[in-house]
Design a protein around this nucleic acid. Sequence first.
DNA 1: CGGCGCATTGACTATTTTCAAAACTTGTGG
DNA 2: CCACAAGTTTTGAAAATAGTCAATGCGCCG
Lengths: 246, 246
Amino acid sequence: MPIAAHPLNSFVAALELRSPMSESDRSALLDLPFSLRTLEKSSYILREADIPINCGTLVSGYAFRHKTTYSGGRQLLSILLPGDAFDLQNLYLNASDHSIQMMTRGDVALIDRRLLNDLAATRPAIQLAIFIKVLAEAAMFREWILNIGRRSAEERIAHLLCEIATRQQAKEPRLIDTFQLPISQEELADAAGITPIHVGRILKKLSTLGLVSRGRQSLEYSDLEGLGRLADFNPSYLHLRHDRMP
Amino acid sequence: MPIAAHPLNSFVAALELRSPMSESDRSALLDLPFSLRTLEKSSYILREADIPINCGTLVSGYAFRHKTTYSGGRQLLSILLPGDAFDLQNLYLNASDHSIQMMTRGDVALIDRRLLNDLAATRPAIQLAIFIKVLAEAAMFREWILNIGRRSAEERIAHLLCEIATRQQAKEPRLIDTFQLPISQEELADAAGITPIHVGRILKKLSTLGLVSRGRQSLEYSDLEGLGRLADFNPSYLHLRHDRMP
DNA sequence: CGGCGCATTGACTATTTTCAAAACTTGTGG
DNA sequence: CCACAAGTTTTGAAAATAGTCAATGCGCCG
């Protein structure tokens, strides 16, 4: 298998995004045994209350984290883009407090979390990279709280899209002026903490403003700067500039 | 200074709550140099965009994390109880994405984060305990998202109180059937993502239901079970049972 | 005792939800 | 190729929830 196509490449890249690593660490990660699996849309990678066994990476496709209330309300917590590492949040916890579910069909590579853990124990740079990735995810959860708690429905949707576009761009630093997200209105609603019907009305407005264009179960946007202005978007919480600790 | 009164005792306890430690690790932590400081109500421990220099512990008093939107909206992200460790979230990040502010007058003990970091590098149990503490905090952020995104205003307030009572009880496992929180209605509002006026109306309702009783800038509650039922509270997200990784 | 900050009240407004129905896509099988 | 079924999106109107504004009350501290 050529290096370029190694399924764990994106796992390594996800860790390296905010914390550099030696060639040796990189290849130690790539040498980890993993299992590759194709998952259908809506299938679960992990369920709330499960004992987490694996970490891994979304080789292709989109997914999201969510949790639900007793009365059935669903709340998305984050969106996983193709290439994103997942389940580092459960690395040392023994019952997952949330679920991870596929948003589209896609492939995942699974790594036994004990093996990753053992590797991290002997390689400080890997330990650190995992730690920093977890901290950056926590920062995104904090911004998500602010978004839902203190912004209008329009701003929430716009902010969500800005975050996704920025993360996407950080991963593939070529110039993209448009980007498509395969998300339904119901999923957007559960991400923003509003109803799907209201999402529809807001998207109509954003669309007449020329900020997004809509397809069935997908969303495309061209005027990222306009969305950012509307949403009060400031990407510093993503901690993408890795000026490391002195 | 007698051990019992060592200001860092609560720091060690915060780490040990979810991850055991040897006597040697414990005393290595207690040997860390620290500075003790009394802070007035509303003063900042850390400001958004600051470069974090210290970790530490709230020796006494209450505090909260928050962030703000450009238009001035403030959103609380978590509440720090007396004895809570803080700023582990910034341990390896170089610009804070949120602020920490005193809710009451209180004392803090500050530790240079580089020294804690160096210690963790040589003591895996400390590294792990810090990691697990960070993961547990992230789990609380996730529940906070669900709370604000998918529960009614009444449920949000009730849930908040349940979380605080449960955390308090985990720290001091003696039987408490009542507990007082020195929080204003404005702070509660910014925690729940609603307006202070609406908080007032909700507290009135909760109070006629016999679930809470109110003082000036404080809140006392006796019927924790009733609050829990109202709020759909399930403490498992706090990860307080430390059945560790096999 | 005065002033300040916080809490309360009431009337009004805005936003968002709810409910019900219709239109539209997409995929499937005859 | 068409008809049907299932899921998503759109629409409209009514209702509930939460926000705004302005005025008043209360308690604490100097």
